[in-house]
Amino acid sequence: MSLPTSTASPTPTRSTPRPATPSHRSGYRTGLRWLLQTHGFMFLWALGMLVVLVAAATIIVSNVTTPAGSIVQHARQGLTWFPFSIAIVGITTYTNIHIGAGLTRRSLGWAALTAAVVMAVAYAALFTLALQLERAVYGWTGWAHGVDGAGGLFTSSGQVGLVVLDVGLLFLAGQLSGVLVGIVYYRAGGWWGTLALPLTAGPILLATPALSTAALGDLGLAPRVVLVLLVLGAMSLAAHRLILGVQVRKLAT
């Protein structure tokens, strides 16, 4: 997969002046901005929910017993699947708008992949920050901040690097999978879209065991990461190819 020269360096979204010569690049900017706006709005929702739920759970648990494990760690699943669903909605809604506005599929493909990476990083940052804040609170109250060592790459909440790597890869798998599911539903309709779910949503389930120290025996960290990256690369390639050939659907009237 070679990056087109026009999108070689992803530019941050800002209010861009109108393009003098229309190019894939200008479409890329417009598309990325739309996708990030939509995702960003839902990110704020996720942030709010996380704060409320974790605070509530912490208060309840601490009233019943002495907390012995992180509550934030359970958000790892929620923060995978919630953005996954937003990615599905995003690509299915936006394809018509993007091409209808005279922008190319190529720019849409790169915008969707970039948005996936940006959002995965954002959610990973959110998760890591929440976990560290919680760790600080636990440290202050004297509770043990335990994590389920089998589920992810990290065995202690103090391993910030491993935490970021773990959820970063997992959330990216969720994002890419969302784009794949969405574009296949868009292209092939409900029936085939559903039948293709093992292929489109499956990669998340493929990435999960690779990130879990409980599975695949005593495979080292590097091979695990490489394995996940290979899966993610294949997903990106598939998503981009599928977007590149998309035909705009008829309007339901």
């Binding site: 861009t16 417009t30 809604t93 091409i99 209808g100 506005a101 005279g102 309007l251």
Partner: peptide, 29 residues
């Protein structure tokens, strides 16, 4: 593609947001 605009019936625009947002979007696109 940038020089071609097809309006199919009600147009390929975002339907679940205010029309102002669509105009803002098109002004950029």
């Amino acid at each position: 593609m940038a020089g071609t605009c097809l309006v199919r019936e009600s147009g390929d625009v975002e339907v679940d947001t205010g029309m102002k947002d669509t105009l803002d979007y098109l002004e950029r696109a």
